[in-house]
Amino acid sequence: MEPQDRCCEYLSGISPVWCPGCGYYGILSALVEAFAELKLPTQELALISGIGCASRLPYFVKTYGFHGIHGRALPIAQGVKMANPDLTVVVVGGDGDGLAIGGGHLPHVARNNVDLTYLLFNNAIYGMTKGQFSPTTTLSNVTKTSPFGLTGEAINPAALAITYGATFVARGFSVKKEHLRDLIIQAMRHPGFSFVEILTSCSSFNTIDMNVARIVNNQDLVNPDHDVEDRLAALRLASDEKKIHLGVYYRSRRPTLEDKFKEMRSSAHAKAKSRPEGLVKQFL
């Protein structure tokens, strides 16, 4: 089968609702190419999302999909993975969904090292509600809800993920599709919580922060000499204000949530008080 056909297998046939010129088309394309490359059976894939333009993505792929509520994709995905660890779980969502309304969940899914992949589409604006500032807006200071400028500093998603304890953190760019595809493949292969911040444009409401030409001129691939196991070096790369580095910042291994549950199960069997036969007996 041609690679192109293999990719088509993962498309649902529903046309995306996104505007012409939206960076998300590139992400969708990189994502299905990654699925094809990993040869994942469609029924073993679960795509989970919250609310927003990015969160519409699961409709366009032919996998199991859960379009939940605003900001709650990560907790839903965590539940899915707990009940069926054999599924490959991918979470997609925007910067508002993941860092404003849903910002409280990221630290916990990261520190629990839940074995799933979180693709955060960062276009630094609220697109679906038509142009209000998001937690990552900086340059396009004036938006519909900040006519006199912004009140707060922008959040740096990749840097946050590193400090929160994600075990795989990378930054990609929707325009560099092949590079992005490879990052997604690495993220999905990583055992544990993998986070990929994807810089992407909003052709309708924010052409400043994620201006394609500006990013193209100011980006570079992560230096091959970078030590991906060095958390502080990763943080420096992610936080570099002069240049945008694209690639894997951080990668480490530690037990996943599922590993922890397995440990608990054997500890429980070893502990008299928690053995199954004691369930009822303790009340008699």
């Binding site: 907790p75 839903i76 539940g79 899915v80 069926n84 409280g104």
Partner: peptide, 21 residues
């Protein structure tokens, strides 16, 4: 799983239940 808040708790229930549990 002790979650970070009640919203996460019920969303975990939604996910686990959808996945068959």
């Amino acid at each position: 799983l002790q979650t970070e808040d009640e919203i996460s708790a019920i969303c975990g229930v939604a996910g686990a239940s959808w996945a068959g549990g």
